[in-house]
Design a binder for these strands. Structure first.
Length: 566
RNA sequence: UGGGGCGUAGACAAAUGGCAAGUCAGGAGACUUUGGAUCUCCCAUUUGGAGGUUCGAAUCCUCCCGCCCCAGCCA
């Protein structure tokens, strides 16, 4: 049983409301939700919260969840986005069956509904332009004024509306408005626009229409048409709920219940569409799927697993207060999942050559190494050991600080899966003083698994045989921002100055164990003692490229930081 | 100064008038052939504030304070 199913009983106010509705016998005991993205951008981790909620709730209550594209604005939407959205939802592990819908599928019915409202005197064609409408709307504290066109007859409205559809009028010259209440304290109820004229080709309906429904007019009716029982959306639509309900009530059609929850904010990243676009446009990242992006495609390329994202979404809860979740929780979920399933391999990022002087030249031993200590059934692999090895430069210090358990002159360490070695001499470049190699000796009786091999040694290092090592490029990714709330105007008025200059570091001379010669894009590993890495999706010929997904928790780094801080 | 929401630990988040859950972060220790993982313990005498009701209040009432959203022919 994994942690997700253990948490199956997890509840929140949304699930409670749904359970109550069920108890009250509403909707004939059925639950039907929907995930309604606008196809004008890429999905990100914030959408994942909504996806997990909508699909999760449906599954828990034996209901269904539709995928519906809210494509009511042809000037902003493109079909290239629908493909990536579908891929991302599927990758996250959710299935909408054959229920892939588009608001544009309902344009004809929506038009008929609008005609009904016009006939009932509940909607009218307004000739005011956008600027005038704004002025007539009033302000937050002052009521609005009624448009001079508000009291046209149904016949006149019908005629005008038909001609709007027929393309007789220019963009912006007229709109269809709901006739509600210009005095309302809720601005959404001050005769909201239902249709606007846009002579633009739509990605699905082509040039069939030149009037397009607004969100408020399209969304609730689409929910109703699909038989949605619970329409889950974010907090900013709370003010729209009275309007959502008003349209449905006027039409007398099936009434879904809109419930609003807080959108996700994550520390050290931005999730607003505007900011994300800015990152891409200004070239701060390499595109929407840059491994530093919080987009689903970016997280995927970074090496995040769908399981870890689902687990995260389950743990953050669903509530109504604006909150910012610590990104370390996301990373924790990731590490927990990867620890469970990532095969272990050895890779040296900053190679330092060592020579084991008492080990026979030319001799090669194939050592047995477990693939994953968390999963004994994963078996083992062979790794070659020889006289010349690479170790991590950082694993050697000429003068070792307190609590530094690694290699230093005269000190012993264990080489993982191999022998205990001792550093005898340090060889330096006579001119630069740089350490070029270490001369060591090994203790032949300490081979891993051997009877007397369990001498207590504090440090264990990873290594790779020089002769057998494969070259690799490793891209070290770190958080994109140095500020905790980069999306906050006050904390970060200028996004550029809040970027982490070290969010990517490319290492081109890394050495990895020979077993990695046949990896494929997306394969993931734990590089022992370093972190989790995955093979980048763009694998150049004859070259290995690994992305660092997340580091291992590093106790030594913490100790060292504390020592330096003193 | 209109309307709609929200305030529980550093970050999330439970509690539904009856002893303030859990998770992440942080701290201490155990264990360890990954300084990983794992395990143990610590981390809110108090729920934005002040009054009130009650045997008993995070929860009910009153007032106050703070924060978020809304004036697109965007969603």
């Amino acid at each position: 049983m994994n942690s997700e199913s253990k948490r199956a009983a997890a509840t929140d106010f949304v699930r409670e409301i749904i359970a109550e509705d069920l108890r009250a016998g509403k909707n004939n005991g059925s639950v039907h939700t929907r995930f309604p993205p606008e196809p004008n951008g890429y999905l990100h981790i914030g959408h994942a919260k909504s996806i997990c909620l909508n699909f999760g709730v449906a599954a828990e209550f034996n209901g269904l969840c539709n995928l519906r594209f809210d494509d009511t604005n042809p000037v902003k939407e493109e079909s290239e986005y629908t493909a990536s959205i579908k891929e991302d939802v599927r990758w996250l592990g959710y299935d909408w069956g054959d229920r892939e819908y588009y608001a544009s599928d309902y344009f004809e019915l929506l038009y008929e509904y609008a005609v009904r409202l016009i006939k009932a005197g509940k909607a009218y064609v307004d000739d005011l332009n956008a600027d005038e409408i704004r002025q007539y709307r009033g302000t937050l504290t002052e009521p609005g004024r009624e448009s001079p066109y508000r009291n046209r007859t149904a016949e006149e409205n019908l005629d005008l509306f038909e001609r709007m559809r027929a393309g007789e009028f220019e963009d912006g010259s007229r709109v269809l408005r709901a006739r509600i209440d210009m005095m309302s304290g809720n601005l959404n109820m001050r005769d909201p626009v239902m249709y606007r004229i846009i002579h633009e080709e739509h990605h699905r309906t082509g040039n069939k229409w030149c009037i397009y429904p607004m969100y408020d007019w399209a969304h609730g009716q689409s929910d109703s048409i699909e038989g949605i029982t619970h329409s889950l959306c974010t907090l900013e639509f709370e003010d729209h709920r009275p309007l959502y309900n008003w349209f449905i009530e006027q039409l007398g059609i099936h009434q879904p219940r809109q419930i609003e929850f807080a959108r996700l904010n994550l520390s050290y990243t931005v999730l607003s569409k505007r900011r994300l676009i800015q990152l891409v446009r200004e070239g701060h990242v390499d595109g929407w799927d840059d491994p530093r992006m919080p987009t689903i495609s970016g997280l995927r390329r970074r090496g995040y697993t769908p399981e870890s994202i689902r687990d995260f979404c389950g743990r953050i809860g669903v509530a109504k207060s604006n909150s910012t979740v610590d990104i370390e929780l996301l990373e924790h979920c990731l590490r927990e999942d990867l620890n469970r399933c990532a095969p272990r391999v050895m890779a040296v990022l900053h190679p330092l050559r060592i020579v084991i002087e008492n080990y026979p030249e030319g001799k090669v031993e194939e050592l047995e190494a477990e693939i994953n200590p968390e999963e004994p059934g994963a078996g083992s692999r062979k790794i070659p050991f020889s006289r010349e090895l690479y170790i991590e430069r950082d694993d050697f210090r000429e003068e070792s600080p307190k609590k530094f358990f690694r290699l230093a002159p005269g000190r012993e360490v264990r080489l993982k899966h191999a022998y205990i070695i001792k550093c005898e001499h340090v060889v330096k470049d006579t001119e630069t003083g740089e350490i070029v190699e270490l001369l060591c000796t090994y203790d032949p009786g300490t081979k891993s698994g051997a009877p007397q091999a369990n001498r207590k040694i504090k440090g264990t290092l990873h290594w790779v045989s020089v002769k057998h090592a494969l070259n690799a490029e490793v891209r070290l990714y770190d958080r994109l921002f140095i500020k905790e709330n980069p999306g906050d105007e006050k904390e970060c008025p200028d996004m550029k100055s809040c970027l982490n200059p070290d969010s990517i570091e490319i290492l081109r001379d890394c050495k990895v164990e020979p077993g990695l010669s046949n990896v494929r894009p997306g394969d993931f590993f734990q590089f022992l003692r370093i972190g989790y890495f995955c093979v980048d999706k763009d694998l150049p010929d004859e070259k290995l490229v690994f992305n660092r997904t997340v580091t291992l928790r590093d106790t030594w780094a913490k100790i060292e930081k504390k020592q330096k801080g003193r």
